[in-house]
Write a protein that binds this DNA or RNA. Structure first.
Lengths: 124, 124
DNA sequence: TCCTTTGTATCCACTTTGGATATAACGAGG
DNA sequence: CCTCGTTATATCCAAAGTGGATACAAAGGA
């Protein structure tokens, strides 16, 4: 029995913060501080992921098997012993993909309702 | 003083449920039950907005001036006295638009990270 | 009449979040 | 070497948001 979602089955739903963390990891940011910076940058400061939410979310994701800590050093970075690096597991990736699909459906509806400057397919 | 956000200034951020409700209203669904059905339909049953969250969210949005109750009957519907109809205010619309923009930014990042089957601009 | 569906409302327990606080290693400058 | 600002992780508390059960009642068809 795992905390949520079977490792081989369907991934559990992601919280908003969980999705943001997964997105940052998928974008090549491996450690906490980098994740915070990335999210702030992508959303232009609008969505701020504070340390409380961030580290709690990381542990939860790890406990659920969506994320795992890595030991391999990202060479290019000067090796900071304080850093803890993570990567998405297969399950975590599937969870993020699913969440993205759902958000996409909502945004399509938003476009249809005239709430979004349709960067999405509006025609046809 | 208003609960959150000035009526003329910047709208307050929407909760996930708040965005869904606003989206449903913008899509022409005026009352609670219809909103629930719409969200379930759009997300293909994945995101379920239960009655607890729904009605609580509606009152909160109303208290914050993002939504207002309407008395005008949507003719075409057989007039059901039980229904309470709502519409988005200007402030509410701006809040929803902003939220859509933010989600859009996150989804763009998700596309860039290979998490989404890019329905969005990937080319160029 | 009876039963199902539509419709709104409220309650409780749980999860999630935001923000403050603490602690410490890193790196640059003096 | 010492100090200071930044990077970095961790934990705590109070507040906010959510999910689901429960309740109640009107509408409408059989």
């Amino acid at each position: 029995m795992y905390a949520r979602g079977m490792p081989d089955g369907n991934p559990p739903p992601l919280t908003p913060a969980g999705f943001q963390v997964a997105l940052a990891l998928a974008s090549g940011h491996a450690h906490g501080y980098g994740i915070m910076a990335f999210i702030a940058e992508v959303t232009d400061g609008a969505a701020q992921l504070g340390p409380g939410t961030l580290y709690r979310t990381l542990s939860r994701l790890a406990a659920d098997g969506l994320v795992e800590e890595t030991t391999d050093i990202t060479d290019g970075a000067p090796h900071d012993a304080r850093r803890r690096n993570y990567r998405l597991t297969g399950l975590g990736r599937r969870a993020a993909e699913r969440e993205a699909r759902q958000l996409s459906a909502l945004l399509d509806a938003a476009s249809a309702a005239g709430l979004a400057d349709t960067g999405r397919a509006e025609s046809a």
